[in-house]
Design a protein around this nucleic acid. Structure first.
Lengths: 191, 191
DNA sequence: TTGACAAGTGGAGCACTGCTCCGATTATAC
DNA sequence: GTATAATCGGAGCAGTGCTCCACTTGTCAA
C-alpha cells in the first residue's frame, strides 16, 4: 500500500472511532471523512461499505472475546464461565447500534462482520455446550438463543441510561431462565 | 374540522398504515404523503412529528391491550395471566422499529406515545404485582424490568424471520427467569 | 535525477431524506 | 354571492449515502 494511502486509512479509522462512539453506528460518513480530513472518495476506497468500517473497528475485540471464551473452556464451573463471558461481552459497548449490527450479521453471510464474529460465536457455543453437559443449562437452548438473548440485553442497555444501569440484573434474569429448571409451571403454583 | 381536512387525515392514516407496515417505523414520510396524494405540508399539519403519526396508528391497540390486562386481573392463575398478556403483546408486530419506539417513550415524557401507553404499562404492572403476591414471580422484578425484557424479545423477533419463529421459546426462557427460583447458583451445580 | 504511470485522492453531483414556509385554494358561514 | 379563515401543496433548505472521474502524487526503473 502506498504510504499516503496507509496514512489516510489510519486517519479514517481514528476519526471513525471517535465519531461512531459519539453518534452510534448510524453516524454520518461525511462527518467521518471531514474529521479525517479526507474526501468521500478516499473513505469509500478504503471502506466500501459502512459495515466494512464497523467491522474493522470491532475485529480486535471479537478476537479477544473469542480468546477469552477459549480460555474459559477449561474453567471448573462451566455455568459460571459462561456467565462470566456474557458479562464480559456486555461490558463493552463501543457505540449505539452494535446489538442491531451483530444480529444483522447472523443472516447475512456475505457481511464482513459475519466472518469476523463467527469464531467468537463458535467459541461461546462450546462454553454453552459444556454448561449443558454439566446439567446446568437446559438442553434445548442453542447458541442462537443465547446470542439473541444476550444481544437483546445489550440492546435494552442502549435505549436509556437507567436501563443500562440494570444490565447486570437483566442478564441475571435471562441466565436464570436458561438454567435448568427444577419445577414446571404446575409445581410452581404449589409453592 | 373542515371536511377536506378530515378526508386528508383519514387518507394519510391509511397510507401510513400500509407504508409503515412495509418499510418499518423509519419509512419515508414523503412516500406516505405521495401515497395519500397529499402535500408534505398537509401531512405535517395533521401529524407534526413522525411520533404523532405512529402514536395514532398504535393508540387503539394500546387501549385494547390495557383492557386485556385489566380483564386478566381477575384470572385464577396470576402467572398464567401475565404470560398470556405478554404473548398477546408480542403477537402483534405491526412494523419494524416498534420495540425501539416503545423503549424511547419510557424516558421521553413529552412524547405522544408516552401518554398513550402509560395506562397499558400500569395495567400490566398490576398483573405483575399479583403474580408476585402469589409468590410465582421474584419479588425484586419491577415493571420496568418486565417491559424492557418483553420489548427485548420483540426486538429480537424484528431482526430476522428465523428469530421471529423462536419468539415463543425466547419468551418462555425469559418468563422462567422472572419466575421464583428454588435454587441458587450453588445448588444448581449439584444436580 | 528524472520521467512514466499506476495508485490514490477529493469533491462535485445525483437522488434521496426530514422539515419549514408561504402563496394559492377552498369549504363554510353569513 | 361573497368574505375569510382554514387548509392545502410543493418549492426550498440542509442534510444523507454513494458514485464517478479529472486531477495529484508516491514509487521505481532508467
Amino acid at each position: 500500500m502506498r504510504s499516503d494511502a496507509e496514512r489516510n486509512y489510519a486517519r479514517i479509522l481514528s476519526a471513525a472511532k471517535t465519531i461512531v462512539a459519539k453518534q452510534g453506528a448510524q453516524a454520518s460518513l461525511r462527518d467521518v471523512a471531514r474529521r479525517a480530513e479526507v474526501g468521500m472518495g478516499t473513505l469509500y476506497r478504503h471502506f466500501p461499505t459502512r459495515e466494512a468500517l464497523l467491522e474493522t473497528l470491532l475485529r480486535d475485540r471479537f478476537e479477544a472475546l473469542a480468546a477469552k471464551a477459549a480460555a474459559l473452556e477449561s474453567a471448573r464451573d462451566p455455568f459460571a464461565a459462561l456467565a462470566e463471558w456474557l458479562r464480559e461481552f456486555l461490558s463493552w459497548t463501543p457505540f449505539r447500534g452494535l446489538a442491531s449490527a451483530l444480529m444483522a450479521t447472523l443472516s447475512d453471510q456475505e457481511s464482513a462482520l459475519h466472518a469476523s464474529c463467527h469464531a467468537m460465536r463458535q467459541a461461546v457455543g462450546r462454553l454453552l455446550a459444556r454448561a449443558q453437559e454439566s446439567g446446568q443449562v437446559r438442553p434445548e437452548v442453542d447458541s442462537l438463543d443465547l446470542f439473541a438473548l444476550v444481544n437483546a440485553v445489550g440492546w435494552v442497555s442502549e435505549q436509556a441510561p437507567d436501563l443500562a444501569a440494570r444490565q447486570e440484573r437483566l442478564l441475571g434474569f435471562v441466565l436464570d431462565g436458561l438454567a435448568s429448571q427444577q419445577d414446571d409451571a404446575d409445581s410452581r403454583e404449589c409453592r
